[in-house]
């Protein structure tokens, strides 16, 4: 669900770019930061996949 929320923010950023809104870049940065946090959580969580 968190990944779907990030994608929704990216979609909102795309729409903002298209409409020339000043919110476009902040929305992009928000999506970037949330993705980085999710990636950090993934790195620091023990793996359960088979190697």
């Amino acid at each position: 669900m968190i990944l779907a929320i990030i994608m929704l923010i990216i979609l909102a950023s795309l729409i903002a770019f298209w409409r020339g809104s000043r919110a476009a870049v902040p929305l992009f940065l928000l999506a970037l930061i949330i993705t980085a946090v999710v990636f950090y959580q993934d790195m620091t969580t023990p793996l359960t996949i088979s190697l």
Binding site: L3, L11, L14, I15, F17, T48
Partner: peptide, 29 residues
Amino acid sequence: TALLLGLVIVGNILSVIAEAGFAWHLPDN
């Protein structure tokens, strides 16, 4: 280009919702 990217993003949103269901995180595998 904007339309194509928008459709790709919407398709992936639907796919993630189908894959994760109502779970906050996806399973690793």
